[in-house]
Design a protein around this nucleic acid. Structure first.
Lengths: 336, 336
DNA sequence: GACGATAACGCAATCGATTGCAGCCACGCA
DNA sequence: TGCGTGGCTGCAATCGATTGCGTTATCGTC
């Protein structure tokens, strides 16, 4: 119940100076002390249940073995998996993740970021980047290591790990065309984030390659409600549409809702493809055809990149693009 | 790009001693310094973009304004919402949450806990408690403030915020009985966690009150696969079953899977009730009837309790039990 | 027996902020 | 003029660990 033991307690129990105890306890420096003494110190530490004070250590060493993770929305089932990938990777290297929800809110992002910064995290993994992110340009100047996840900035400020959206969209469109669809619409994510823009551009290319009419409606956000609103608008203005490529699975959920409201059957009357393959979309009715993103690996690779950078590798901002694959389920069918 | 400014930089720019700068910057002590000087310091701080070093502060004050949060499984959509409740509450009081996934693994829990402890969190919010948790009994001795969420320990070591499982199960059973079911089975969660046990006991009482036969199969974990396994076993041994109360929604998902494998229709042949009302279960086919748990409030109330405790309120371990309500959707129907 | 080399360890500064205590100054009052 | 009072501010210790540098002890060698 008393205060937790400090290294001074360990040292005096072992009959040595704090400095010696410190060296004995640290694997990196333990060869600077006599093996016998080291054992005594170790025993003493065990006896007292000594746990080093991470704060004090970080203050002195200027390294916290902690990484800040910025997530736009933890309630989107996509991100917990990414987080797992991060934790699995950094945990093995003795790092801990400090999670923060930004809620896609710039102010909140700023606050959270500052909180992490003042806790002296060694680097950041950021999944909440906007294409033109004032925060990130400021961060770039600070020189603190950052790796972007899933979303990138327009300016190539940082290394990033993303899915190969280009290819993902292409195969999705291919699939729909193969089923005979000629009126394919895209409900894009917000153009303020890179995934929204990139997927819309990819859609443009894929559609143009088949000389089909291009219809795109931009959603206000990656959410079910925004998806539903956009879908309503689309169905109103383009009743000829027979297939929809959603900007992500949340938007696809909104589409399903809009469809059922209008009594349109999916996939008989309208085919639908999502993006991300998040948890549970295989349990919808119909099970959602979607572009699978390797969430866990997304986090893991990004974490690895950051660890490399912290270990002093070259910091040329390379961009890693992970292969995506289309998972065909029940929400797509042949055009009537 | 140079090192971030310290309070010494601010002080020298303002032409005062560090101590004065410190007092000027801290609202609690700023009345100890001349208003004019205080303004000078504030200006200097702003000019330099000064951010206090939280590590140094915590080291000195022995308070970190950080709370540790232990989550058994972040990928269960239940918990992100709880986390949001926590963050919303503590954020308003200047606290930050340090999240850790325990994966329901005692070793990992221990590791994560130690990591948080060595970072000197001011208290813990623990959603991963086991009924007889060696970690927690040790923690209780340390005297660090803890509030349990959702799950409790057998020994009343800590305050806790849970759902009123008793009443929740009762109304669920009531609902099924009202639909004419007489062969109701319970697929309980693991008896090693309080929710598993409490709901099973509540089921026992509710069934006994109606003098119905009691069938309970315990699942190995709160997971879809364990639920499916238990459901198979149940349907094998008790084919007369017409209704199932699942220990939680994940288990219910497993049940749905087992049912569809056997070609049994829900709700026509078997009715099913889940527990938690987690994200997306309203989108299943059939939409799941389930007991709604106020996730956000669960986290918020627990956080408030912890904050109270930190603010020095009495620490008599009170237990808060939040009202639950049955959400009737499509997975329950009248017995044939 | 003196000297240099090497291993083992102790000393004290340091990281950045907080805070009890003491000093200083100005002012008021006798 | 002397003294008390109170408002501001500075000094220095402190939190717990790390680390450059200096000191001591030990041993081998000539």
């Amino acid at each position: 119940m008393g205060k937790p033991p400090t290294i001074a307690d360990v040292a005096s129990l072992a009959g040595v100076h704090k400095a010696t105890a410190s060296r004995a306890l640290n694997p990196r420096t333990s060869d600077q002390v006599n093996a016998k003494t080291a054992r005594r110190v170790l025993m003493a530490a065990k006896r007292l249940g000594y746990q080093p004070n991470a704060l004090a250590r970080s203050l002195r060493t200027n390294r916290s073995a902690t990484l800040g993770v910025l997530i736009p929305d933890l309630t989107n089932p996509l991100f917990p998996l990414v987080v797992r990938g991060i934790e699995d990777t950094i945990g093995a290297h003795g790092y801990t993740a400090l999670l923060a929800n930004t809620d896609n809110d710039p102010l909140r992002t700023q606050t959270q970021f500052d909180a992490l910064l003042s806790r002296k995290v060694d680097g950041f993994l950021i999944a909440s980047a906007m294409r033109d992110d004032p925060l990130l340009t400021r961060v770039a100047e600070q020189g603190i290591p950052v790796v972007l996840i899933n979303r990138t900035t327009d300016a190539p400020l940082f290394p990033a790990v993303t899915g190969d959206d280009e290819a993902g969209v292409a195969t999705a469109v291919e699939h729909l065309v193969g089923l005979g669809h000629r009126h394919i619409a895209h409900l894009s994510g917000p153009a303020t984030v890179s995934t929204g823009l990139v997927r819309a551009q990819a859609f443009h290319h894929a559609i143009a390659a088949h000389s089909l009419p291009e219809v795109v409606v931009e959603c206000a956000s990656y959410s079910e409600s925004a998806g539903a609103a956009a879908a309503s608008c689309l169905l109103e203005e383009h009743p000829e549409t027979t297939a929809i490529l959603a900007g992500n699975d949340m938007i696809a959920l909104g589409v399903l809702q809009a469809l059922s409201e209008r009594g349109l059957d999916c996939p008989r009357e309208i085919s639908l493809i999502g993006f991300n393959d998040m948890l549970f979309v295989d349990k919808l009715t119909p099970p959602l055809t979607t572009v699978h993103v390797p969430h866990h690996r997304l986090g893991a690779e990004a974490a690895q990149l950051l660890l490399d950078q912290l270990a002093g590798a070259d910091s040329t901002p390379k961009r890693v693009s992970l292969p995506l694959r289309l998972v065909v389920r029940g929400s797509t069918g042949s055009a009537c």
